[in-house]
Design a protein around this nucleic acid. Structure first.
Length: 194
DNA sequence: TATAAGATCGCCT
DNA sequence: GGCGATCTTATAC
């Protein structure tokens, strides 16, 4: 007999904290997307924190626009945007209303025997069928949400964020977080214990 | 209306 | 390690 215990889901309060805390604690958690009759699940192993309007790498740094508007709302919603003419990026909005912070989900490990390469933000959204249509989705809803970690990372490494060389002093901030034990990621990730 | 650049990826050398 | 694909978004004219 299979246990009928309902699977927990991260609630709003989890997201309504600072992006760095949320980015670290999302490692090991299970991203879930229901698409049609399928349920795609993947264990998050890499994240990046974008910490607010003062962060020159954050999309909110030049103020509110049509694209980034969801970031200015309360934490617990998805911010999905299109980039490089090809890729959708998935973020979890964090913090309280008016504080534009978010966590970019960069990599995950497929669960339930599902085979896929989710090592990279563009590959992850493509394989999990997450698109701009999911922008502003409620992460406490039934379609796109995150479950608490079953296996927490044994060690977390911090490194500078990827692809933000334009961000002045902010490009060197250690705001990328990786589960050092992830087999899906390259073995030669260099970072600071965090 | 036009232009530049981007929170990437995969293929090339 | 470098580069092109590809097109939305933001900003400037």
């Amino acid at each position: 007999m299979i246990s009928m215990v309902p699977i927990a889901k991260l609630e709003r309060g989890f997201y309504q904290r600072d992006a760095i805390t949320v980015a670290r604690e999302l490692l090991g958690c299970i991203l879930v997307h229901r698409v049609g009759r399928k349920v795609l699940r993947a264990r998050i192993v890499e994240t990046e924190a974008y910490v607010g309007q003062h962060d020159l790498a954050c999309h909110a740094t030049k103020g509110r626009t049509q694209r980034n508007a969801i970031m200015f709302g309360p934490g617990g919603y998805a911010y999905v945007y299109f980039i490089y003419g090809m890729y959708d990026m998935l973020n979890a909005v964090t913090g309280l209303e008016g504080d534009a912070q978010a966590v970019l989900i960069r990599a995950a490990e497929p669960q339930d025997g599902w085979q896929a390469s989710l090592t990279g933000p563009g590959k992850l959204t493509r394989a999990m069928h997450i698109t701009r249509k999911d922008n502003a989705a409620d992460l406490y809803g039934d379609k796109l949400y995150i479950e608490p970690a079953i296996v927490r990372p044994q060690q977390i490494l911090a490194t500078p964020r990827i692809g933000v060389d334009y961000a002045g002093a902010w490009k060197d901030q250690p705001l990328r977080f990786v589960d050092a034990g992830s087999k899906a990621l390259s073995r030669k990730i260099r970072g600071y214990p965090a």
